[in-house]
Structure formats: C-alpha cells, structure tokens
Design a protein around this nucleic acid. Sequence first.
DNA 1: CCAGACAGCGTAACCCCTACGCAGTACGGA
DNA 2: TCCGTACTGCGTAGGGGTTACGCTGTCTGG
Lengths: 255, 255
Amino acid sequence: MSSTASEGPLRGLPPALLSAWGIAQNTTKGPKPRWSLDQILNTAVALGDAHGVEAITMSRVAKTLGGGTMSMYRYVQSREDLLVLAADAALGRPPRLAAESWRGRTHAWVAAMRDTYRSHPWLSSLPITGEALMPSYVRWMEAGLGCLEGSELPGGEAVTVLTLLWTYVRSDAELGAGLAESLPAGARTAPEVNAYLAERLRVADRHDEFPRLRAILESENPADGGESFDDTDFALAIDVILDGVEARRRRALRE
Amino acid sequence: MSSTASEGPLRGLPPALLSAWGIAQNTTKGPKPRWSLDQILNTAVALGDAHGVEAITMSRVAKTLGGGTMSMYRYVQSREDLLVLAADAALGRPPRLAAESWRGRTHAWVAAMRDTYRSHPWLSSLPITGEALMPSYVRWMEAGLGCLEGSELPGGEAVTVLTLLWTYVRSDAELGAGLAESLPAGARTAPEVNAYLAERLRVADRHDEFPRLRAILESENPADGGESFDDTDFALAIDVILDGVEARRRRALRE
DNA sequence: CCAGACAGCGTAACCCCTACGCAGTACGGA
DNA sequence: TCCGTACTGCGTAGGGGTTACGCTGTCTGG
C-alpha cells in the first residue's frame, strides 16, 4: 500500500472528486499547510452567500483568509474546481426523512433541498453535477431513493424522477432570484408580480399576439394573496410530478 | 409622439428588453451604424455554438466582426446584456404544433425545445429568464399554452407546468453536456455510462453507505442498449409530468 | 451649409486566472 | 544530530476580459 498519489483505481479520476471524498494522499513531509481544504471551502461558501458566485474567486478567498492568491492552488486545482467543491460543501447532507408514506417522505426531501437552495442562492447558478458523483450528490440521491421506496418505481426510473425533482428545485430558486432582481422593490405577492409583468407585456404586445399569456397575467387571482409569489407554483409543480409517479404506480399494480 | 428614448410606458424598462422587442428609438442623425444588432447577435450565437458561453465575449464578437471591442457597446449595454440577447436569439420561435390531443401537442413542444437546446448547448448554461419576458420566452410560452388547451388546466397552472417542462429540458441538456465532458471517450450507451459511474462510486463507497444507488448503477440493463444514454431518461421524465397533468385533468372532470 | 447628434474605437484602469520558480520548513533516516 | 527531500506560501508576470471616457470623424435636418 504505497501512499503516493497515483494508486491503482484512482488513476485518471478528477482531483476534485478525490478531494471531496477525502481520499487524501496524506504526506507528513514538509511544512504544515496553513489552512485546511474545509476552511477554504467554508470561506468560498460564505463569499457566495454574501455576494453571489462571481465573488467566489481565487483572490477573494485568499484575501479573506489573509493569504496570497497563489496559495489557494495548493488546495484546489483551478477556479472551476473551487466552485465545484464549494457547491458540494454547500449542498451538504440530506436530513433524516422518516415520514410514513413514500409521498410524504419525498415531499420532505424536496422541501429540505429547497431550503438548501434558498440559503445558498448562488448554488442555483451552477450545474447540478459539476463533476459526476460528488459526495453530496450521491448522498442526496441515496436518500431520495430511500424516500421513493414503496412507490413501485424501478430503480433507474427513481433516479430519473429524483433528477427531475432536483432540477426543478434548482431552477425554481434560480427563477426566483432572477425575478426578484428585475422586479420593482415592492412586489412580493403573486398579484403584484403578475400586475407588473402584465404591464411589461402590454408594452411589447401591441397587436395582441399573445392573448393566452396576457389573459393569465391580467386575471386577478384574489385567492392566494398572502403567499409569496412563487410558493404556490412550486407546490403545484412538485404535486404534478408526484401525481405522475402515483399514476404509474397504480398502473404497475394493476398489471 | 416624440421619438426620444424615455417615452411614457418605456420608463425604467431594461434596455435589453427594448432592443429585443425591436422598440427602437430610430434616429436618422449621425453616421450609419456599421453593423446591425442582429448581425452582432448572430455572431455571438455562432461563437457560443462553436466554443461555449465563455467565448461569447465583447472582444471576440468584435474581432470576429472586424471591429474594435468598444464599438459593441453602441449596440449592447454590457456583456450580461449580450448574453441575454444572444440567448433570446438562439431560442428563436417555436414551430407550429398541430397535433390532435393536448398531450401530443405538448410532447411536440417539448421535443422542439429539446432540439433547440441541443443545437445550442451553451443555452443551457444560462438561466431561462435572464430578463423577464424576453420575446422568445413569451412566444414559446404562448405556444405552450396553446398546446395545453384542452387539458382542463387553469391558466396559471399551465404556466407552471410549462415552466416545469422547460426547466427539465434545459437541465437535461446541461447534464448531458456535463456528463459527456467527464466521460471517457467511448461511453455512449446507457450500460457503458452506468458501468463507468459504478466504477467511480466503488472507489468512494468503501463501506457500502450507498447500497441503493450502487445497486442501480451495477445492475445491467440489457433492454435499452441501443439508445443514447439519456434519451430514455428524458422520455420518462416528460411522461411522468404529463401523467401528472392527466391525473389532475381526470380529477377535475370527476368533480 | 453647418450645428449637433451620433458612430467607431484607442487608451487606460481594473479584475481575474494561472505557469513558474524561489525561499523557507519540517520530517525521516542515517 | 544533521542532511536530503518533499512540500508549503506566495511574488512575479503574462494573458485574457470588462468598461468609463473622450477624441475623431460622419451624416442629416433645418
């Protein structure tokens, strides 16, 4: 068992993967590192939380830590790598999910993931798998598979459904963040947002080319005035997906 | 009707929106522009197609067009703007969709959108609405609403479902592109990809912490050997969503 | 026919990534 | 004890990229 880097099955694997899984080539030689990878990633995550992805930068992380820019390259291969690892760190671990029904469990899984994306909005500007099979990805996926057990979905299909749910969580966070940016200061509830968008559309749609969309945006929707503008949308989308799973389950049972 | 920029309802609207909708403040004074906005956007799209988003850059567009970098700023507010406008241009217009059933139409809508994302892979690294209500967005959305007519979905819910479909198309393209990059050269079919991922997971999962995921990756799936690795996943996800819509339709009819 | 509006674009300031290599540090073995 | 060696921090410099500013020149409306 040599402890050098290029052991047998590790050949050709991306360094980010190895770092993330903690498969370290622990050497006891040379000076002690001034920081730890975790420290650097935590800093990166904090920068992202405070100022967005663009702030997750070699120089800023280094400056925040009180070191030189180039020192960061001892811990991380490139900026791309830094982003991948920071995203993995921010994604963290799924909570324990102990509901009775598969549907309840899956709902909880989605909710937990949504919370995660909400507390790290910059996460949604990165692809879900910046590097294939990073630890957080694997952990969330495994947990999700546990949730779907009992739904009669074959394993491969379960992965697909979880991916679908995941991509929607991420996109919803992204859309929310983007919209919030271009919205006037006050608009928070669904009717306010719709009114604003309707106004915008009216400027462009002089010849009534988009009657359906216009009708939707202009119809007042007094029911859900209290909700934040995208909560009901989110719940609906998830329900549609789970309804779809349920429909397949019934169909599978019947045969 | 003055032709100056800050007319009544145009106040405060992002310039990218105005450019995209062709609401020009046409002035006939001064020298003729050397290029047109369309020319610039086409160049940007071509650069993205050939070399990815990172290549869509003020300098490269200018160089390609044989002009100076700063000249581009006469047509576009910033690089962000350039990206938003190029994405809008690449998204283009939805085709005519004339299937009989709402489900067939919606399926065709999704397929057309997927083709679009496939021919402009860089599109999937940009958020779906970089700026709210850009023309291509509105056109695709309106077309989608037409598709869903007859599904008994209330208008607002139809927008949500279309958004769900849209985000999945985009994420699927993104995942596909990302995976293709980190995959070894040969792997194209589902079993090959799975074998590779299983191998990777085995390196990290020494203590069998992820039995479910592992079982899925390691199970040979001889059925769909011929298909490209993500076609079946894609079809399944879309079907689940449409099944969900169908389930709600039935439920709505019953009441 | 000319004032004024507007186009192209050079310059320069700023930020970021990163290859390279030097100086210094700490361990392992002799 | 002491040296070789492997490693760390990080300065330097080159090569992008974005963008404010202002100059030069061009065209048109009155």
